[in-house]
Design a protein around this nucleic acid. Structure first.
Lengths: 224, 224
DNA sequence: TGTTCGACCTTACACCGTATGGTCAGCTCA
DNA sequence: TGAGCTGACCATACGGTGTAAGGTCGAACA
């Protein structure tokens, strides 16, 4: 379609970079081989020349994310290095929220391995035994990852979504306030700085399925 | 196909229960509307009489999981209640690992709301302010969830998988030991009790794509 | 000048969620 | 008794998915 001198050459690295960019914009579910190929200016099956499978791309994308984490250097002070790492993890995952949902795979890339290696090296250099290093990493990573996941599940960008969405639940608020008084209490006066923002957590996803093609009086999933 | 008196009646609740059972056995990716319907003895489209969409089923499944968490009762002591909750969360999520990957949705069910309500009630009864309650829940949930996620990403059942899978990486171990000395060190002498088991983390997923249909000498994704 | 080969394409398949519109037994009510 | 309604289910179809199998073609090389 476009002359080869005009089009930037396709490589595994570029495909993965473009995939990351697409996922950043539109999320990871709508990212398909066909759309990625189109973005690269080729056909879907041509991707398989550069890449094993879609999972291979996802692994590569995760490795890109790992490469953006702040990695401790030799001689870094332990506490500040771990703090930098945690903060950068939070920031990077906020920029690539899709990474959290694909984090449970098992084929780490070079950046991932390098990052973990550096972290282990930093802790060991600080005098930690190997078991203690494992424990420290488990504790830190569990919390940071879990926090990032909580944060990602909230609609952080204030795109007018919150006000409209809460109206749905407000209609039933009387019943809800009776059934879940503590929850209602927290939803009414939330702490703006708290990690949990229950009012947003509770919003219903009604706009995803706005209407049915026929009178739905009998449908089980309609509220009576 | 089967007489209606023979077949257990299909309801939203039963569909979700069966979906949970299927996901427990085979994971959540292969769970499709057609397979679930077949398991229930009906056709795929008949599910939509009882259920809004597949997302509706996933929401219901998550609510089932929440209903299995240990929920604090009125008057429970704060520390032990939170500890029970954390431990049961770990155990329940170990039994339903798929729940972790769909945890970032936004249409909570009654069990979810009830559970959160009870937790808030317990902390408030212990004298926590509302902001402090939010903070406490954020901290606890972040860690417990992150830990469960780490744990789920490891192949916990010793189905002979570990030994075979590590052979792949052992072949390249010399190069890896040089590039990532700390990682290799931890992989060689891991702590059996540590949360991170790097040796297993590092295994390659080669068996997923065992061979190609043609000589793959030129493929970019083959190691040179 | 013929052969190889890297990079790409076409076609096809099985599967997915679900929109649309039946079908039909059993019930209500005139 | 018979007409109409309705709850529960089914058949077909559409546009999407990942990817197996094999074809095409220009450039590089013998």
């Amino acid at each position: 379609m476009v002359k080869s001198e005009t089009r930037e050459p396709v490589t595994r690295e570029r495909a993965i970079r473009v995939a990351v960019a697409l996922a950043d914009v539109g999320g990871i579910e709508p990212l398909s081989m066909r759309k990625l190929a189109a973005e690269l200016g080729i056909e879907a099956m041509s991707l398989y020349y550069h890449v094993k499978s879609k999972d291979d791309i996802l692994d590569g994308m995760l490795d890109v994310v790992y490469s953006e984490f702040s990695t401790p250097h030799a001689g870094d002070e332990r506490r500040s290095a771990m703090r930098d790492r945690a903060e950068s993890t939070r920031n990077v995952l906020a920029q690539h929220p899709w990474a959290i949902s694909i984090k449970a795979r098992n084929s780490p890339g070079l950046a991932t391995l390098g990052h973990l290696d550096s972290v282990i090296g930093c802790l060991r250099a600080a005098g930690f035994s190997m078991p203690l290093t494992g424990h420290a990493m488990s504790i830190l990573d569990s919390y940071v990852q879990g926090f990032a996941q909580q944060e990602a599940s909230l609609p952080l960008d204030p795109s007018g979504d919150i006000g409209a969405a809460t109206e749905d639940i407000m209609a039933q608020q009387d019943q809800m306030a009776q059934a879940f008084p503590n929850l209602a209490d927290m939803a009414v006066k939330p702490d703006p700085a708290a990690g949990l923002r229950l009012r947003q957590r509770v919003r219903l996803r009604t706009e995803a399925h706005p209407r049915r093609h026929r009178s739905s009086a009998g449908r089980r999933w309609q509220s009576p």
